[in-house]
Each structure stands twice: as C-alpha cells, then as structure tokens.
Design a protein around this nucleic acid. Sequence first.
DNA 1: CGTTGAAATGAACGGACGTTCAGATAAAAC
DNA 2: GTTTTATCTGAACGTCCGTTCATTTCAACG
Lengths: 195, 195
Amino acid sequence: MARKTGSHAEITGPAIREAALRLFARSGYAAVSMREIASEVGVRAGALYLYTPDKQTLLFDLMREHLETLLAAWRMAKVEGAPPERLENFVRFHVDFHLERRDAVFLAYMELRNLSEDNFAVIEELRRAYEEELEDILEAGRATGDFEVADARVTTMALIAMLTGGHVWYRSGGRLSRDAIQKIYWDLTRRMVTK
Amino acid sequence: MARKTGSHAEITGPAIREAALRLFARSGYAAVSMREIASEVGVRAGALYLYTPDKQTLLFDLMREHLETLLAAWRMAKVEGAPPERLENFVRFHVDFHLERRDAVFLAYMELRNLSEDNFAVIEELRRAYEEELEDILEAGRATGDFEVADARVTTMALIAMLTGGHVWYRSGGRLSRDAIQKIYWDLTRRMVTK
DNA sequence: CGTTGAAATGAACGGACGTTCAGATAAAAC
DNA sequence: GTTTTATCTGAACGTCCGTTCATTTCAACG
C-alpha cells in the first residue's frame, strides 16, 4: 500500500510536527521513537524521513519555530510608552502566550540538552533576544526612575522564571481564568520593580 | 575477573547513585543507559543490579532522597518568629539549598514524567509538603497584616518558580556570590508580598 | 590454609531503536 | 489511457537497550 485518498504532504507534514510536539512534551525527546510519532500520524516510520532529515532536526525545528513565533508575536504586541505601561504589556503578553502553548514551552525549556552544539547556539540566541526585551524595559524604567531594580539581569531571570512557571500548574478551565492569572502576575511584577 | 582490591558495597553503592544523578541530570533519564552509569563507576552493567532492582527505582530513589533531604534540612533550618522573619529565612534557605544541588534539583523537576504512577504520587506528596511550608508562612503573614497577598496559592507557586529558577543560570564562581543572590531574591520576595 | 560469601564479570536474551531504500501505489498530467 | 511523479510501505541494516544468571574472583574468617 502507499498513498491513500486525501493524503498529501500539506497534511502529513504539519501532522508530524504536531504529533512530535505533543509526544516530545509528554514523554521527552529521548523516550519517544520515530515509530511512535509515525503511528500517531497514521503512517510508517520511513515516511517521516520525507519531512525531516532526522529526529534531531525535527526537535530543533520545533524549538526554533516556537521561539520565532514568540519573537514575532511579541514584535506585534509590544507597545511604546512609559516603562510601567510597557512592563504590564510584556507581563500580560508573556503569561498569555505561554499558558496557551504548554507543550511548546515545555519542549523549549526541557530539551535543550538534547540539541547538538550548533542547534543549541541558535536556540539560545533566540531566547536571549527575547529576554533582552524584558531587560530593556527594566533598564528604561530604572533610567526614568519608575523602577527600582538592584540587578537588572537577575531580576529579568527571576521574572521570566516566575511568569513562565505557571505552565506547570495551570489547567485550562481550572480555578483561575487566564485573565485572573495575568492580573495576579502583573501585580506581583509591579511590586517587584517598585520600591 | 571479579572483586578487585578495595572495592566494597559501601563504595560502589553511593558511587552508582552519584554517577546516575550526574548523568540523569546532564542527559536525561531516558538518554542514559545502565552501561553508561556502570562505566562511570568502573563496573559492568550487571553489577548495578546488586544495588537497585531496576533503572526506574534508581531514578525514584534519587528523587525521593533529594526531597527528603530538602524537608529534613528545612525542619532544621526553620525558625519561629514573625512572618517576615520566617519568610526571609525560607528564601535564604531555599536559594542556598537549591544552588548547591543543581543536579538533584534538575532531576526532581524534569524527570517527573519518567516516574511510574505510584512513584510519582510519593514524589508529588513530598513536594507538596515543602510548598505548603511556604504557603503557611504567607497565610500567617496575611493574618498578622504583615503581608498583602491576593492569592496565596499562586503566590507560592510564583515564588517557588522564581527562587528555584536560579539553578538555570547560576554558576559557582560567577559574577554573583551566593550571598549576593540571596539578598537580591529576598529583596524581590519582600516586595512581592508587601503593599 | 581451606572454606565461605560478598561482589563483580561476561555472555546472552528478546526487543526496540534510527535510518535507508527498492518497490508499490494512486493522484495528477498529458 | 498511458505516463509521470509525489507519497508511502515493508523489510532490512547494525546497534544499543534493560535485565538475568552461571561463573569467577578475592577478602575475610575459622
């Protein structure tokens, strides 16, 4: 058997990436086999190699895609204005984006060690660029006197960790709405950077 | 060949756990083979089974040991007193403990998905007990009016995420001493819970 | 100094892994 | 209706996996 009715590259390609993302996030890159991914898609393992040169590249592409989407979305969402306004905007954007993409967030934070050296460098650079957006806001607020920040770098990392941590316990339809969580996190953030 | 000069169970047992901890943390549970662990210790794979019934139990024991050590250390370190004092104590303890045990922290947070259902339940209970210590302090401070906390549960999770996040970027001998990091994190925490 | 028992070996087990590729199939193009 | 071409299969490859176990080694004991 081969090509079935209605099976095309435009369907199989994305289906493979979606299945890989879900399975990698759930069980970890090393614990998921190509046969498992293929089975989820309804295809045999060999067919995956029409869409990715190998397993490592499949992981890398998923992570790069996630971070590039993140940066692109942020460029759309970011606002000009006073630092407090910019910071609130960042917090709400970050919380929202990350709560909506639990699998990709998980992957991008947990599977760095499974990347080859070259691929790791690319991913790290993307992540650094995003973190720098937050650090810039903190520095701007320090310059205007809106914020009081002892160490902008550590505060940036502390904020990112705090704001991203929600993906561990957040459940869609749980006790708190996304909007309620955004509010709480913004409140915590505001206090952290003002005397 | 078998037993070499000076090789005893009291040496091999801990050596296996140390090697497994280091390798699991570095490459991930699924990516590390029993042969790799054995090689690190200087024995063959079969010898590992004198010290652990299987690979899964080896992982579980490492995680349980870490969390039990954490809880025991906290019971020694915790102080009575006013909530702000108790909170500062917690923050300093947590940061110190976690920065000193990067591998174990990594393992306990990243390999939960590789635990069997029963083992997961045990680990989760230990983690919950620890988080509850922080939540209790926040609630106590709310009762005395020392703290203003909108949602004690979310604030607890936010704090834990923030305080633990340091293990990602902290490097011993880096720009900041552990004491400096403690100070920064305590300052951030204090602001988060006070108006 | 012979015996015992803890500690480790080395070979083997069935199975799963990532990856390759010649061949089969069906939709599209002519 | 024949040819072309994109898509997928099925089998095979060499390798590694977790685990078992009969056997070997050697320190300790009597």
